[in-house]
Every structure is written in C-alpha cells, then in structure tokens.
C-alpha cells in the first residue's frame, strides 16, 4: 500500500511544481504598472468602507455542523459497505439503526428551522 500511495506523493509534488510555474511565467510575461487604484480592494468601483468585516451568520456554522455529522457517519458506513457481502442480517440491522440515527439528527435540525436559508 505504501508503494501505491507513492504515486500520489510523486503526483502531488510534480503537479505542484508544474502548476506553480504558471503564475511565475505570468509575472514574467505580463506588464507591471501598479498604481493605487488598481491595487485597492474591489468594491463595485467605489471606495471601500471599513475593513474587510463581514456579517458572519451563525447559519454557516450550523450547516458545517450537520455536515460533520454526516461526514463522520459516512466514514463509519464505508468499511461496513466493504464488508457487507460476508456479514449477517443482524449486523445490517445494527448499521440501519445507526443510519437512522443520522437521519434523526437531520430531521431534528429540519424541524428546528436550522436548515432555512444560507
């Protein structure tokens, strides 16, 4: 397995190197005429008002939380799916109960209105 992943490691390094060349090349080939207006932060053509502060809603965090629930659930379901063929019916029932727990979490969040708007 280590040798299998060696390809991934080599690919990571090679592609990183190949892609990192591109902005460098662009920097060499493109014109360089910086001025204050070009380097100012973009705000639909107006002057920026205040620092880059964003009204961060708590909905983002709650969506990420539900995602963590299903992510970990999925990671636990994958090995069981691998072993599914040789496993008895009661194991299937146990895992069905587990998947039902995940679904219950989603329905709770749904009913509490957490899944509305972004």
């Amino acid at each position: 397995m280590r040798t299998d992943f060696a390809f991934v490691g080599v690919m990571l390094l090679v592609v990183f190197g190949a892609v990192a060349v591109v902005p460098v090349l662009n920097g060499l080939l493109g014109p360089k005429k910086p001025n204050a207006a070009k380097q100012a932060t973009y705000e639909c053509g107006m002057e920026t008002v205040g620092d880059a502060w964003v009204q961060f809603r708590v909905q983002y965090y709650l969506f990420a939380l539900i995602f963590v629930l299903f992510d970990v659930g999925g990671v636990l379901l994958f090995p069981f799916a691998l072993a599914y063929n040789g496993v008895a019916i009661w194991s299937v029932l146990v895992v069905m109960l587990f998947a039902g727990t995940l679904l219950a979490g989603l329905f709770y969040a749904w009913r509490k209105g957490v899944l509305t708007w972004d």
Partner: peptide, 20 residues
C-alpha cells in the same frame, strides 16, 4: 500576458497559493 494586479492589502502567501 495580463498584468497580475495583486491587491495591496492581500495576504501574499495565502493569496498566491490558493489557485495553485
């Protein structure tokens, strides 16, 4: 051949690494 206009307030390393 376009100019790479980096915003002055940008975080250089993070800004440049992201597309790569």
């Amino acid at each position: 051949t376009k100019e790479l206009t980096t915003p002055a307030a940008a975080d250089k390393w993070v800004y440049n690494l992201a597309p790569i």
